[in-house]
């Protein structure tokens, strides 16, 4: 059974349309996917030592909240991000710097002096003075910052990527 020439022609045009159509879709479509996704895939790079002032200003065994800001540019918009850390001084030289962001859903925790706990206001997650989970939903202890002390000044290493 031989096909008529006309049918061949049709098949040919169908084939060409499919190929040309796919090529065009690919040439526009693949860049378009990159175009839409690229800002979401871009990693924000922060790597800086933040000065937190004189170490002696921080009382021993008393978590003290220190807030600072960093300016960031997203797209064409410049904003200032705010960060909070708890500085806990164990002794003259030994300290811990804890993030105030709850490890559960990123609410900000507060230090409760009476209960000697960090309490998250959102889902009642509780952390002890070292940031270990006491109770509630948080999956892991509060994040710690790397720190250094230079000439009595405390610095923490802010690293985000």
């Amino acid at each position: 059974m031989s096909k008529s020439p006309n049918l061949n022609r049709r098949e040919f045009v169908t084939l060409v349309s499919t190929v040309v159509g796919s090529v065009m879709t690919a040439i526009v479509g693949i860049p378009a996917i990159g175009y839409i996704l690229s800002p979401s895939l871009r990693t924000k790079k922060t790597d800086a030592w933040i000065p937190l002032g004189k170490l002696e200003n921080y009382p021993v065994n008393q978590p003290t909240l220190f807030t600072f800001t960093r300016s960031i540019t997203t797209g064409w918009e410049k904003t200032v991000n705010s960060y909070g850390v708890f500085v806990v001084r164990k002794s003259d030289t030994e300290i811990e710097v804890l993030s105030n962001v709850c490890t559960h859903l990123s609410c900000r925790v507060n230090w409760n002096e009476e209960k000697q706990e960090y309490i998250c206001p959102c889902h009642d997650g509780r952390f002890n003075i070292d940031g270990k989970v006491d109770s509630g939903p948080p999956p892991r202890p509060l994040d710690q910052y790397e720190y250094k002390i230079e000439n009595g000044d405390l610095f923490i290493h802010l690293k985000e990527s």
Partner: peptide, 27 residues
């Protein structure tokens, strides 16, 4: 997706499309 039609941001958002976004220049 990125363009903002206000005098404050229209120009910057186009600059962002041209330089900040992958293949923005092509689109």
């Amino acid at each position: 997706v990125y363009y903002v039609p206000t005098p404050d941001h229209a120009y910057d958002s186009i600059q962002y499309i041209m330089n900040g976004v992958t293949f923005g220049w092509l689109i």
